[in-house]
Design a protein around this nucleic acid. Structure first.
Lengths: 202, 202
DNA sequence: GTCTATATCCGGATAGAC
DNA sequence: GTCTATCCGGATATAGAC
């Protein structure tokens, strides 16, 4: 393992530790010292990799964990039931299981950051908006398996994402998965209703 | 105006300023010095009213702004269209207007706090969970005007609240109201579909 | 009840040895 | 690339004059 490769590892560990801590405590509630400790390095090393300081690290966390979570959800949907409506419902059940298994910590990796920075830090706000936008592109493509109309599919995708995000808020606060399961049932009813009125021609 | 009454005013101003700042910056991102400045008082005075320090103040903010927002939403629904399904949809339009009018700052008053404290501060987590629970009670009662079945009404209420919370996250991040409007359309479709299958006998 | 002053600690950030 | 040491500001919190 070359020194350059070790450096890359350290950088990745810093991003991973920051992502994990941000997800549970938010950005403002997480200090660089804690990130350094959790990743087994020093604050000085963080500044070696992220000349822009905490803001630069946070932006990278948003982008990398946003991409990772988008891929995770896409994989779950792809491996789920063949009927896309059922697959959407099953994904909420899977999200509920994962959330409970993590002690109600691992929900959306960027939602807390998004709310914290929305009115306080324009570059980070843009980064979160772009991640949500990319997720919506993928979800809309999936929803076109339910309704062929592009605009209706995007509406459905947006509704699905809002229900997932909102259910994460309620479920983490309540420390139970009823909100996620109720949202999953709602998604199935909504998607079915849209499929009935805007039949997909496949 | 008696001194006791003035004291009450100061206390109220502190809670109001903290609520406003928390809504935009979150709890961890807001300092007591800023709250004191915004409410025209001193940090020492905050400790005079809140012996428990920032945690005690934060809990009061959660409970009072939670109650206020619950009453606001109830009023909007009561004054909206007579058809409860249309009233739900209209409420999302109203939320979109209010959010944009406030520069995308005034969304849910406790969502940011809820995500910040969910895994870090058990008493505050409970406080946010209780507020969400009270909102759900009121929303479920309203939804019984759509579907008579108690369990279905609660499912619908939960779905509506998740869509509102999630749409607030997406709309604040994007600084546009498309998510709120899409969620509003989704709520109307979902509520209509449930009304059709579980007809309310009124 | 309100204000000043301050204690104590932790935040982000930096310089420079190695 | 990594580590130590440190600066400086802001954080919560407290003591006590008025």
């Amino acid at each position: 393992m070359s020194p350059a490769r070790r450096g890359q590892d350290t950088r990745d560990r810093v991003v991973g530790a920051a992502a994990s801590l941000y997800r549970r405590q938010g950005c403002a509630g997480t200090g660089l010292a804690q990130i350094a400790q959790e990743s087994g390095t020093r604050v000085g090393s963080i500044y070696h990799f992220f000349g822009g300081g905490k803001d630069a690290l946070t932006e990278e966390v948003v982008r990398t964990s946003g991409a990772a979570y988008g891929a995770l959800v896409a994989g779950i949907l792809a491996e789920g039931p063949e009927d896309p409506v059922e697959a959407l419902g099953a994904a909420f059940g899977r999200a509920a299981d994962d959330l409970a298994a993590s002690g109600y910590a691992d929900a959306c990796p960027i939602a807390t950051i998004a709310l914290e920075v929305a009115s306080t830090h324009e570059p980070l706000r843009r980064a979160t908006a772009e991640v949500f936008g990319e997720w919506l592109v993928g979800l809309t493509a999936f929803c076109r398996g339910v309704v062929d109309d592009e605009a209706v599919a995007r509406d459905l995708a947006t509704a699905v994402l809002t229900m997932l995000e909102g259910a994460f808020v309620l479920s983490r606060a309540a420390r139970d998965t009823t909100a996620l399961h109720a949202a999953g049932r709602g998604v199935v009813v909504l998607a079915s209703a849209l499929r009935d009125t805007h039949a997909a021609q496949d």
